[in-house]
Simulated assay, not measured.
Amino acid sequence: MLLRLDLQLFSDEKTEKATPNKRRDARKKGQVAKSPEVSSALTLLFSFSFFMIGGKSFIEGCLNIYRHSFQEYLLWDLSISSTQLLFNQLLWDVTKLVLPIFAVVLVAGVLANYMQVGFMFNVESLKMNLGKLNPLQGAKQIFSMRSIVELIKSIMKIVITSLIVFLMIWKQKNELFSIGEKNLYDSARFIGSLTVKIGISIAICLVALAAADYFYQWFSHEKKIRMSKQDIKDEHKKMEGDPLIKGKRRARQQQLAMNRMMQDLPQADVVITNPTHFAVAIKYDFETMAAPEVIAKGKDHIALKIKEIAKENKIMTVENRPLARALYAAVEIGQPIPEELFNAVGEILAYVYYQEGRYKGMMA
């Protein structure tokens, strides 16, 4: 009894990798290996890289809005039409200024998600789950291993970003102390350049942290979807009983058999036809075969295909309606003909050999 219980417990342990079917089901439910840190890190990196490359244009755009506001817009007469025109002009200028930033952020977010899970649209995650409102379940999540990992990850991000900011500012402390001696443009350029450098440095460190977090999420996901030996057996039984799976497997087997049959057909000695509904290809080698064998057979469109291939390979076709029907019904592909059909098949083979001017051993 104890041995049976131990075996049952062992079979229920989640020790096996998930099957492809289990992975598909998990993906449909939105259960994939994904780290939110990858999206935030890449977004930060792309954004500051954009400012490093196009920061000068962004600043010039801001200055143009500033100049137009104080050198042109303030001189306009105050009216409803001028106010509408002013609003439209400012809206267009600001849109041109921030639209590239939004595009960079969008590309970074899409790229980060595609790199992790590929293209996936899942409606399951949009459904309301009242179980998430359970306070007991929430308390378990607070004190779970995932919460501890998230806490450690947050502390690491705070420490890393703070350390980077401190070191880079400390390195530039002399210039910061003398910033009051510079003009407005040089001061803004220095602050902007320092900010971009700090942002890129932080983003690079966060990308490395995000990569480590992604591997942790992948390991956690793989562990979560593990299956027991019993689960795999149950899934296999379920798939075996699925009519759709059986139908696909049967169709695949029939296709393979058809391809193999058509490959063997050029080796036939004769094709016996109905003439339109049935076709049976016979092969006989007296040195290696005890009796002639059926190497291909078919009805309707398959029979037409057999006759076409026989014509292409110059294989003689003989019409014999009762014999063609009997062979099709009684003999499977790869099997010898039954004894009661020896004489009828032998006569046809003898006729074929005579017409082709060659000799093969005849059946006794």
Results as ranks from 00 to 15, higher is better:
F177E: 01
A257S: 04
L75P: 01
A291Y: 08
M120I: 10
D93A: 15
F278Y: 14
L74M: 14
T317S: 05
F143Q: 00
G334F: 00
M1R: 10
Q254T: 02
M128L: 15
Q84S: 13
A203E: 12
G131A: 06
T276E: 07
M1E: 05
S154K: 04
S39L: 03
F46N: 10
Q89F: 07
E340D: 13
L45Q: 11
T288W: 01
Q89L: 06
E293T: 06
L99D: 11
V110R: 03
D242Q: 06
Y185S: 05
R27H: 09
V280G: 03
D93S: 14
M156N: 02
T43K: 08
G334M: 02
L44D: 09
I295T: 03
Y353L: 09
G54I: 03
V105L: 13
A257W: 07
S39G: 14
L42V: 09
N174S: 08
V149W: 06
L126T: 05
K171H: 12
I232F: 00
K299A: 09
I158M: 11
A344Y: 02
M168S: 03
I272V: 10
E16C: 05
M115K: 11
Y214W: 11
K56N: 15
N343Q: 14
I160R: 06
L349M: 10
A324Q: 05
K173V: 13
R252K: 07
Y185E: 02
L133R: 01
N259T: 08
F58L: 15
H68M: 11
L2F: 14
T195P: 03
K283W: 04
V165H: 01
L111F: 15
A310C: 06
K34E: 10
V207T: 15
L91P: 00
L133D: 01
L349D: 11
R250L: 08
F121L: 04
D300R: 02
P36H: 07
E319R: 14
A41D: 09
F87A: 15
G61H: 08
N174A: 06
G199E: 03
